[in-house]
């Protein structure tokens, strides 16, 4: 692919991912949230293919494929199923209104730009512009975990953070050594699975997956 075209594609993917993060902040339904996550992951996978193609690093294809399988299909599907099974309700409970969340997300994006700005000069990959975006996605993911009450939405926040992280990995170094990369990916999968296990246990024990009931351990 032409460098310019691939560059444009990459920028497009990255911007789309960020937009999906923002979108996730505005959703009020779990289903929407999961969809947003799945689409974001789809862009991530696409990005991996584009980078793999333009840099010739074939291991990124593998990564993209796994992302496609796990994050785009597997996890959202499993979660939707669980949500239905647990009667978790369709609403996303948030401690903050949508305008507030969006404003803070915007502020976080600005912060991400500010702090990554000096790094731009030091990284010489074609994807380096993505750094600020990936930082934004990470921060917004974390912010989502701060504002959302349900266990499932928190898990989605974590997964979105990880999307941002993978974006970052690709943007500044075209991916880490394959062993590491695959290992990291399976780790993430394991995390998702184990979080799922415990979310199940919690929902059985407390009859809800609203984490605001999990407040008994305190000083």
């Amino acid at each position: 692919m032409d460098v310019v075209i691939s560059g444009n594609l990459i920028d497009l993917c990255v911007v789309a991912m960020l937009l999906l993060s923002m979108l996730a902040m505005t959703t009020t339904r779990i289903a929407q949230l999961l969809n947003a996550f799945a689409v974001q992951s789809l862009f991530l996978a696409f990005l991996a293919f584009v980078v793999a193609d333009s840099t010739g690093r074939s291991e990124l294809y593998v990564l993209g494929a796994i992302t496609l399988a796990v994050k785009v299909a597997g996890i959202p599907w499993a979660m939707k199923n669980t949500a239905v099974r647990l009667h978790a309700g369709r609403e996303v409970d948030s401690t903050m209104g949508i305008p507030g969340s969006l404003l803070i997300s915007a502020a976080l994006i600005i912060v991400a730009y500010l702090v990554t700005e000096p790094l731009m000069a030091t990284v010489d990959t074609i994807t380096r512009n993505c750094l600020a975006m990936s930082m934004s996605v990470i921060l917004i993911g974390l912010f989502m975990m701060v504002t959302r009450r349900k266990a499932m939405t928190e898990a989605v926040g974590l997964l979105m953070m990880e999307n941002g992280l993978f974006l970052g990995i690709m943007s500044i170094s075209y991916g880490m050594p394959l062993v590491v990369e695959i290992g990291i990916f399976f780790d993430v999968l394991m995390v998702a699975v184990i979080i799922g296990i415990f979310a199940l246990r919690i929902s059985r024990a407390f009859d809800t997956i609203d984490t605001s009931v999990l407040r008994r351990l305190k000083e």
Partner: peptide, 24 residues
Amino acid sequence: LEATWKYLMICSVGITLGLVGITL
């Protein structure tokens, strides 16, 4: 269960941030 949930979630967030560091 509550403790485990917090442990898992907080440490996962932490470790994700750690990975950002490693990436950088």
